[in-house]
Amino acid sequence: MEEKDLYAEISSIRTLMERSTKFISLSGLSGVLAGIYALIGAVIAYNLITINNDFKPFSDPDYGQALLIKLVILALVVLVLAISTGVLLTIRKARAKGENAWNQSSKLLLRNGILPLITGGIFVIILLIKGFIGVIAPGCLIFYGLSLVAASNYTYGDVKWLGIFEIVLGLIAALLPGYGLFFWAAGFGVLHIIYGAVMYFKYDRENSAG
């Protein structure tokens, strides 16, 4: 065996171990877009809320049922748009690299992230039905952050940091009732844009595949 083969052998083992366990086709650009959707959604929500209500900081907000339904629909539209953009751009990026987006590591990524996400989703819906509106934004942020941290073992390490920031933001939001929407916009809007931009410049740019 030649000396250079030895190095090639070891580096091929290392890349394979990494590539087989981590899903690295997550699109950075889709993070930026998801953040923009969230910010637009938050602006619309802010207008919907302030049209008939005075803004009362440090109090649990008291919205009418009609307004709540509008806000929930708005949130769902933002969610569906963000997820579909993410899935589409990720599939495109995987294709550009000649990989299948639905592979063992992406399955593991989803399987690990989905439990906190669904738990959090149901928990938040229960709170909403019970009328605890002030806990919804922190609840969304904290559970989303936990889900990212849980999934992050199977993709870029940067995802773990996004998760930790979401959790911290969620906890701060819980301390400051009445500002839920602002924290929601910061967590789902601003953080996603920052994270997406970092990912884009760190991993995507040289591949120019979004």
């Binding site: 083992i13 394979l16 087989s20 366990t21 592979n103």
Partner: peptide, 26 residues
């Protein structure tokens, strides 16, 4: 053999791996 070593590195890093995913990866 290179491929056997590669297969083994994937299986050591993962709990289990299926045939088609291995084929695609390698």
């Amino acid at each position: 053999n290179r491929i056997r070593l590669q297969v083994m590195s994937v299986l050591v890093a993962n709990e289990s791996y299926d045939f088609n995913s291995l084929k695609e990866l390698l």
